[in-house]
Design a protein around this nucleic acid. Structure first.
Length: 309
DNA sequence: CGCCAGGTGCTGA
DNA sequence: TCAGCACATGGC
């Protein structure tokens, strides 16, 4: 069991706010992946406790993924410019924008279009089971005298005799794997009409026509333009990928929930998404993406009855 | 059953 | 440029 101090941070708000689709909450612990490394983590007051069987997953790597190096107080001070976002900040203080793998984020949000989060999670999990590699979180050398591992019910934790707590997951498929997948099989996983989009985008990367890792080093506009060249990637998905996968904090993804939240600023006047996007960027500034994530999470959790997590 | 979901691509004006 | 429409699927 290892520990990381984490000030001004909420693991639960961060992992359940719809930016990542592969974290499973089992008996108070979140199980998931950072890149190819499997991780078990929970927050106890101001401290993160975690376990991993991958030596490559250093505390620094975890801190980077969770964006604990950023000065959240400073960021929130910049975007706390009206009552609506102020309330969202009060409700979910500690929510941070993750630094996820770029390819995984791109593929995930292609699947996310015109879809709901429950089904997105299922689609991505089936995609990983079909095309990823099995990865187990192996038991620690000196397992305590705890009772038998609980039976997990999440699809992430199968009963196939995985490591500690029965956890066994699958790594995210590589681009070349999905580029070679058949559209029919992708459809059989429930991807629907997104199947050819995902395959085409995977092929674009596999053929070297989109150097995706390079997008981390370029400006927001250049990254977005490049992402828009992918099949199944429009304005909204490109912004999600830029924000969650490539640290472009100016990105302001507008989906149906954010569109609803934005009506607050325009007294329900009908506005195009382009207009809302322009307004949001000048209203919230260079960390507009943080404002967006707080607004998104707040409006969804306000609909408490129908929102999971 | 009908409606909704972290929309995109295509078409025709 | 922009409104209007089809698109797969499953949860509620």
């Amino acid at each position: 069991m290892l520990e990381i101090p984490a000030k001004d941070f909420s693991l639960q708000a961060t992992l359940s706010s719809g930016q990542a689709f592969r974290w499973a909450l089992l008996s108070g612990w979140y199980y998931g992946f950072i890149g190819p490394s499997v991780l078990k983590i929970r927050q106890v007051n101001g401290s993160l406790q975690y376990d991993t069987s991958d030596a490559a997953l250093t505390p620094e790597r975890i801190r980077h993924y969770l964006a604990l190096d950023l000065d959240l107080a400073d960021i929130l001070r910049q975007v706390d410019v009206d009552m609506q976002v102020h309330q969202a900040i009060v409700h979910h203080r500690g929510l941070r924008v993750l630094r996820q793998d770029g390819w995984e984020t791109l593929a995930s949000f292609i699947c996310a279009s015109f879809n709901n989060i429950k089904r997105i999670e299922g689609m991505i999990e089936r995609l990983c089971q079909a095309y990823g590699d099995p990865v187990a979180l192996t038991p620690p050398p000196f397992a305590g005298p705890k009772g038998p591992a609980h039976r997990a019910e999440s699809p992430l934790a199968t009963a196939k005799g995985g490591g500690v707590n029965g956890f066994r997951g699958f790594s995210f498929p590589r681009p070349q794997t999905l580029a070679a997948a058949s559209e029919r099989r992708l459809r059989s996983l429930g991807l629907g009409y997104r199947a050819p989009y995902l395959k085409a985008t995977a092929r674009l990367i596999d053929e070297g026509k989109l150097r995706i890792d390079h997008l981390r080093c370029v400006e927001y506009d250049a990254a977005k333009t490049a992402l828009l060249g992918c099949d199944g990637v429009g304005d909204k998905v490109a912004d999600c990928v830029a924000l969650f996968g490539f640290e472009k904090y100016e990105a302001f993804p507008i989906d149906v929930w954010i569109e609803r939240a934005m009506r607050y600023y325009f007294r329900h006047k009908p506005m195009t998404r382009q207009r809302l996007h322009d307004y949001a960027r000048q209203h919230f500034g260079p960390y507009a993406g943080y404002a967006q994530q707080y607004l998104y999470h707040d409006i969804r959790t306000a609909h408490a009855t129908s929102v999971p997590c």
